[in-house]
Amino acid sequence: MAERLYGMLGEFDSPEGLLAAARQARAAGYRELDAFTPFPIDGLAPILRIPRPWISVVGLIGAFSGAGAALLMQMFTNYDYPLNVGGRPLYALSAFAVVMFELTILFSALAMLVATLWQNGLPRLNYPVFAASRFHLASKDRFFLCVKGQDPMFDDQGTAAFLTDAGAASVERVPP
């Protein structure tokens, strides 16, 4: 059995050409699409159906976890080793504020860092499209549309013909 391709990579000269090809691909029924551009292109994310990032929710959960951990840690310490200094109460929440603030920021930042790495699939040491001969131009002045091989409509010759008809300057097979 032949090894399935990672996808078919079409190279475009302009962002408008890439947007038009992505719209055509979506209209033709392709669902597994990815684009590589040297700068952000307005309107490309909805066509590719890139999910909304949930990093802010993770940051909020991390912040509450940090505040809760700081509060519980200090309350436990004051319960185990009570110090009656100057008649202050055993659980003086105003005295806990600084440590709670610090751990709130720390846990939130660390949670967002880990979530960002996980959501982006990093660290990714190898990505199949990096092996494409002209892909190095994606960071300079070329725009690439990749139809992934896992797409139900993917067909080696059919997808290559589709990308050529959509205006691709070159089409290249991307091995896995």
Rank of each mutant, 00 (worst) to 15 (best):
M1H: 07
A2E: 14
E3A: 15
R4H: 12
R4Q: 15
Y6K: 11
A20P: 01
A20D: 12
A28L: 00
G29P: 05
Y30G: 05
Y30H: 10
R31L: 13
D34H: 12
A35I: 02
A35Q: 10
A35W: 06
T37H: 15
I41A: 08
I41G: 01
I41V: 15
L44Q: 13
A45T: 11
L48A: 04
R49L: 09
I50H: 11
P51V: 08
P51M: 07
P53N: 13
W54L: 14
W54C: 11
I55T: 07
V57P: 07
V58N: 00
G59D: 11
G59A: 12
G59L: 06
G62S: 06
S65Q: 13
G66Q: 06
A67F: 06
A67D: 01
L72P: 00
Q74Y: 00
Y79L: 13
Y81M: 15
L83G: 01
V85K: 01
G86E: 12
G87F: 05
R88C: 01
L90Q: 11
Y91Q: 01
A92H: 06
F96L: 08
V99I: 15
M100C: 08
L103T: 10
A109M: 08
L110E: 02
A111P: 03
A111C: 10
V114L: 15
T116N: 12
Q119V: 14
Q119W: 14
N120W: 09
G121E: 07
L122G: 11
Y127P: 05
Y127G: 03
Y127T: 11
P128I: 06
P128E: 04
P128L: 10
F135P: 07
D141T: 05
D141V: 00
F144N: 01
F144G: 04
D151K: 13
A161P: 01
L163P: 00
T164I: 08
T164C: 02
A166H: 00
G167K: 09
A169Y: 13
A169G: 15
V171F: 05
V171G: 03
E172T: 09
P176D: 13
